[in-house]
Amino acid sequence: MIEVKGLKKAFGQNQVLKGVGFHVNEGDVMTLLGVSGSGKTTLIRCLNYLESPDEGVIRIDDRTVDAQKITKKEIIELRKKTAMVFQTYDLFLNLNALQNVTEGLIRGGKIPKPDAEDIARDLLEKVGLSAKLESKPYQLSGGEQQRVGIARALALCPKVILFDEPTSALDPEVIGEILDIIKAVARSGVTMIIVTHEMEFAFSVSNKVVFIDQGEIVEEGSPREVFLESSQERTKSFLARSNFRFQPEYYL
């Protein structure tokens, strides 16, 4: 359902993505692993054109774009296949929780306001925020903000939700709650691409793991193949330095 071919992106002299390709099937949960600076953020930001790749072809659902001849209209159409959850939440600071969720639905999705509000209330309840619909971001804790961030992405019913380190900015004690919400979303069958440093979470939530290093995909496969059976030196040394400790219950 998602296919990426030959994706290249440089910032000035810094070639960040060196021809990346992968594919994701409908309902897949793909986690993207790699050290800081390896190009994970750049890669998923290219998928919804928050970053414009220099070269490459991206197909999401029935929409295919070629980076070298993409139009503004195609960018909007490609974005309409995706939604994103940000590391720093990036809620609209001038809007309350409910409006944060409805804004995209009303303006981008052209859904009538009352319907959008129903959708938003429903989703905010699912993420446990019914009591804070009117709260502005500055009145919410990090964990609460990220719940809104997840609801905002879910509301759009995109073909794929992109998560960029959704728990990296959170206090340790709330990370688990947010990961549980993401797991619940995954179980509901939504296609997702997740950048994360939470190795156990990655192992248990995804059915596909991609390991990226210095702008290249080093290895991809099932969590078992990458975490437990990898023969690649770079993967093995990355995992050895990560907080991943193999817990038998995950794979039994």
């Binding site: 928050l50 940000f86 303006r107």
Partner: peptide, 20 residues
């Protein structure tokens, strides 16, 4: 990040400016 968020929920540049 406010622009990124606006574009990520499908707002156009004009909409992002006016509403966010």
């Amino acid at each position: 990040g406010q622009y990124d968020a606006a574009y990520s929920v499908w707002l156009t540049k004009r909409q992002a400016l006016v509403y966010v």
